[in-house]
Each structure stands twice: as C-alpha cells, then as structure tokens.
C-alpha cells in the first residue's frame, strides 16, 4: 500500500554548538522527502539550524524491562561525584 510510507525519527539541532535532540517523527518514502517533511513540521519558528532523520526501524533500543539491571548499578556510587570528597577548608577552589 503506497500510503504506508516509512516512519523516520527527526532530530533537531537548535543552535550551533548544541546537540541534536529528538523532536518527533515523520512519514516519508525516502530520506530526501523525510528531511523536507521534518523541515516543514519541526522548524516553522526557527527551532533549528540542522536536521537529522533516521529510519525508525534502524534504531536499536534497550528493553525497558532491562532498565533495572542496566542502570541500577550506577546507584549508590556517590564517589563518582565531586561532592563526595571532603577537602580542607583552606582549599578554596578545586
């Protein structure tokens, strides 16, 4: 069915020096039209200076069910933050 164009994920860079951030998705038969649709849909008010489009099917995502084993090990590791360390008062900036 020709109506079933592929789904593309759109990433917009708001200004030079910032990251591309996921904005949403568009339907398009190819990359060129995906970019045009992304431009029409997500940058009507100067929201970006650069666009990425990626076929949604090409994105590999972690399983939300695995979130525990993937991300919990980062818990309780206060020593990874600078505030964990006590410094002598005489050290003003470090």
């Amino acid at each position: 069915m020709s109506d079933n164009w592929n789904l593309w994920e759109v990433f917009v860079r708001p200004r030079r020096g910032l990251d591309h951030v996921h904005a949403g998705s568009v339907h398009a038969p190819d990359a060129e039209i995906a970019l045009q649709h992304a431009r029409d849909l997500f940058t009507r008010r100067g929201e970006g200076v650069s666009l990425w489009v990626v076929r949604s099917a090409d994105i590999v995502a972690s399983d939300p069910g695995d979130a525990g084993e993937l991300f919990d090990p980062a818990d309780g590791k206060d020593y990874r933050y600078p505030t964990h360390y006590e410094l002598p008062d005489e050290v003003a900036n470090m």
């Binding site: 020709s2 109506d3 164009w5 398009a28 038969p29 190819d30 039209i33």
Partner: peptide, 11 residues
C-alpha cells in the same frame, strides 16, 4: 493519492 504514489515510485 497520485502525489503519494509518485513519491514512492521516485524513491
């Protein structure tokens, strides 16, 4: 419809 079909044919 023809626009959508033409876009697919072109792709």
């Amino acid at each position: 419809a023809w626009v959508r079909e033409a876009a697919v044919a072109h792709a």
